[in-house]
């Protein structure tokens, strides 16, 4: 497993996301209220660019006509056929056990620690003053 430094943490503000290419893989990094998550950009259905999809809330219902809205921005709807995926787990809503997009462990590391290595930071120089998003591949 290699650890990849993919972006300065400040570049992905809460509620935003960034698409990165790491070791030939397209991966979406999401910041949900300060927590970072990384998902494969490939939808398990027909391969749509999942991480370009809309971030929406989760709507559930106990009874027709009632809409229980929760977790705004934490579900990802595929830009193609609209299947919903949970950004926290990569699981689809429709078939969570069998249908999921790969999710990768993410940490935020201080530049100081990163300077000691071993990390892949191919894309930009690391400064010891800043924090960085690191994913394990």
């Amino acid at each position: 497993m290699t650890r990849h430094v993919v972006a300065p943490a400040s570049e992905i503000a809460p509620g935003s996301r960034k698409l990165v290419d790491v070791a030939g893989r397209s991966i979406g990094i999401f910041n949900l209220g300060g927590e970072f998550f990384a998902l494969s950009n490939r939808c398990p259905h027909q391969g749509g660019s999942l991480c370009l999809g809309e971030q929406v809330g989760l709507v559930l219902s106990e009874e027709p006509g009632q809409y229980r809205y929760s977790r705004p921005g934490e579900m990802l709807r595929c830009p193609w056929h609209g299947w919903e995926f949970d950004i926290r787990t990569g699981q689809s809503w429709c078939d969570p056990k069998r249908m999921r997009t790969k999710s990768y462990p993410v940490t935020v590391e201080p530049g100081e620690a990163l300077a000691k290595g071993p990390y892949q930071a191919d894309i930009f120089p690391v400064s010891i003053e800043a924090d960085y998003v690191v994913i394990d591949l």
Binding site: R42, P44, H45, Q46, G47, D95, K97, R98, M99
Partner: peptide, 8 residues
């Protein structure tokens, strides 16, 4: 129920 595996 399908667990559609893309590669296959």
């Amino acid at each position: 129920m399908s667990g559609a595996v893309l590669e296959r």
